[in-house]
Amino acid sequence: MVAAIEIDGLTKRYGDVTALDGVSLSVPEGSFFGLLGPNGAGKTTFINILVGLARKSGGEARVFGHDIETEYRAARDRVGLAPQEFNVDRFFPIREVLEHKAGYHGIPSPEARQRADEALKQVGIYEKRDTRFDWLSGGMKRRFLIARALVTDPDLLILDEPTAGVDVQLRHDLWELITDLNEGGTTILLTTHYIEEAERLCDEVAILDQGRVVTVATPGDLMDRGTDRITVTFRDPIRSTPSIAAGNGQVEAVEIRDGRLVVSASQGGLVAPELVRELDAAGYEIVDLDVSRTSLEEVFVELTRSDSSVTEEGTA
């Protein structure tokens, strides 16, 4: 099966700025793929290259096996993009804008009209069909961008920070909508800097930082890479650190805080039972045990720590 997106050594320079620095990625067909990264990481640039809004400086990019430059029509035909910035023709009512979009993809007019109506209903703004984009509220504008991406029934739906600055209701509606689409077979590429979103939705995430892919993994794997914290409370507060053999090699630190034992370990969920057995055997009386998983956010911050504060200041 060909990948929905296949990227090899993709680079993009804007003058002195290297926005993408040799990115290689493969997004399997049917997956829900997250592209995570701080502001200025190169997420939008990556997307723009795929759809023809930016020219690559080097490397290869294919969409469903079609080279994005030599077979741009076949590649673009299968993509629906909801961009980060509003780029809607404000002269026409939104239903007409959708009809135009369908027409650019070669869908003849009676069907284009029907699809426009369906897409508007799908995102819940059908009653606004005769309104111009400017007159929509902020949330409706976001919904409209999704409708425009959906009107051609794309095989690959690209959403560039779709939930940036939207309210909770819309965010949940959106999540539901795109999850349904993904279950129906649509490949989704979602960029975000909300970790929670990626954690909740994505099968796989790539973390992008300063134009480079730092890692590609499932959200679960990423969290396993982080350090979990096991806190053990005893009937009598302890003073000295017991020697611990449990979780051989996975334990990173052992300390005492307020009479409690705090063990930092990777995959804390696996270490905890062993730890309890060991402490029990050594005669400690345990009254409470808490395992707190690292958040994906912490892993993310860890992975993108290198100079990212500088980047963020520069672009935020």
Partner: peptide, 10 residues
């Protein structure tokens, strides 16, 4: 930027 909406099409 609305010309983008034409460019990204086939």
């Amino acid at each position: 930027d609305y010309i983008d909406a034409v460019i990204v099409t086939p």
